[in-house]
Design a protein around this nucleic acid. Structure first.
Lengths: 200, 200
DNA sequence: TGGCGCATCTTGTCAATGGCAAGATAGGAT
DNA sequence: ATCCTATCTTGCCATTGACAAGATGCGCCA
C-alpha cells in the first residue's frame, strides 16, 4: 500500500492527484498548473516536480490511475455488452478529469510501461463483451486489411460508447436528450447490431 | 471577401489561422502559443492580439472555420447516412486541428453567435441523413425524457462516427485496423442499425 | 496632390508558469 | 547518537499571455 504513511506532508502524491482531478474538472486539462496544485495542497511550488518530474509525469500518473479505474468498472459488470457500454459512459461522466487526460496522449507519456499495462487491461475487459456477443461471427477479415467480423464489432461498440461519452462531456448534445447519461446511453447502444428506431 | 487585400502584412489573420492549424497539428491545441504563431508569420509578438483579442479569440475563429468546413463537407454528400458518416470521419482526419478545437469548448467562446450559426448548420446536415433513413420511426419519445425514435437514431449515428474519429485521432486504436480511416469507418458504420458481424 | 484619420503593427512591460539547481529538514536505519 | 536519504523549500531563469503606449502606412477626401 502507498497508504497513509507519509513524511512531511502525509502522502503528497495522492493529495496532488486529487487536486489535479478537481482542477481539471473546473477548467480542463490544458489550464492545469503545477503551481496551482501546490497551492491547493499547501506545499511549495517545486514540490510536485519531485514526485512527478514534470507536467507530463503528473498526467501520466493520472492516465494510469484512470485506465485502472476504467478496467475495474468494466470488470465489475456481468460482461454483457449493454452493461459494459453503460459502465464505460458512466466512468467517463464520473471521472471526467481522468477520461479527458486518458484520451489525449499528447499530454502524457503514453508509451510508458505502466500506461500500456493499465490500458491493455481496460481494453481486454471491453473486448470481452464483444466476443461474448451471441451473434458474433468468427470471421477475422478478408486479408486485405479490411476490418470485419469481431474486430469490426468491437470497433463499432467502442466507437459508439466513446463517441457518446465524448459528446456528452463536450456539452455538444442538444438539450432535448435529458440529463441522465446512463439512460440515454442505454438507448443509443441499443441501436448497435439492431434495426433502426424501435421506440421500445 | 476577406480575400488577398491587406495592409502591412497582406492578410495576417489568414496567415495566423494557417500557422495555428500547422502548430496544432504538430503539438495539439494545448501547446499552441500566440507568440509562436507570430514568429511563424514573421510579425511581432503582439500582432495576433489585435485581430483575435486573446487565445480564446483565435480558437473561436478556428472553431467557426471548422464548423463551416464540416457543414460544407457534409452538404456535399448525397445525404445518405453511410456517406455522411464517412465524410464526418474524413473531415476529422483531414482537418484534425479544427476538429480538436471544435469539440473542446473550454478553449473558445462556444456561445458566440458565429459559432452557434456554423455549428447549427453542420448539425442540420448531419441530422438530415438520419431522418432520411428508410426504416426511421416517427415516434418522438415517451414523454419521460427518454430518447427514442429519430432522436435516438441521430444520437447513435453521431456517436459512432464521432467516437471512431476521436479514437482514430487519439491513436487509441490497435494497429490491426489498417491505415485507411475511410474504409474502416465504412465497416464500423455498417454495424449501426444492422445485425452483428456480417463479414460482407 | 497633399494632408488627415484610423486600422495595423511594434516596442516595452508585468505577472504567472514550468523547469532547474542548490540548500534545508526530518524520518528511519545502523 | 549519528548519518543517510527522501522530502520539501528557496531562488532563479526563460517563456508566455495580456495590456499599454507609440510608430507606421494605407486609403479617403478635399
Amino acid at each position: 500500500m502507498t497508504g497513509t504513511r507519509g513524511y512531511h506532508h502525509g502522502d503528497l502524491p495522492r493529495a496532488l492527484l486529487a487536486a489535479a482531478e478537481e482542477a481539471i474538472r473546473e477548467s480542463g486539462p490544458a489550464a492545469l498548473s503545477l503551481r496551482d496544485l501546490a497551492r491547493r495542497a499547501g506545499v511549495s511550488h517545486a514540490a510536485p516536480a519531485h514526485h512527478f518530474g514534470d507536467r507530463a509525469g503528473l498526467f501520466t500518473a493520472l492516465a494510469v490511475q484512470g485506465f485502472d479505474l476504467l478496467a475495474e468498472a468494466l470488470e465489475s459488470t456481468g460482461g454483457e455488452l449493454l452493461d459494459l457500454g453503460v459502465a464505460y459512459v458512466d466512468f467517463a461522466v464520473r471521472h471526467r478529469a481522468h477520461f479527458e487526460v486518458m484520451f489525449h496522449p499528447d499530454l502524457y507519456r503514453s508509451d510508458a510501461a505502466e500506461v500500456r499495462a493499465a490500458r491493455d487491461r481496460a481494453g481486454a475487459a471491453l473486448h470481452a463483451g464483444v466476443t461474448a456477443l451471441p451473434a458474433a461471427s468468427t470471421d477475422v477479415g478478408d486479408g486485405r486489411g479490411g476490418v470485419h467480423g469481431p474486430l469490426g464489432d468491437a470497433l463499432a461498440a467502442w466507437s459508439i460508447v466513446h463517441g457518446f461519452a465524448t459528446l456528452w462531456l463536450a456539452d455538444a448534445l442538444p438539450p432535448g436528450v435529458g440529463d441522465d447519461p446512463r439512460e440515454v446511453a442505454r438507448t443509443v447502444i441499443g441501436r448497435l447490431f439492431a434495426p433502426a428506431a424501435d421506440p421500445g
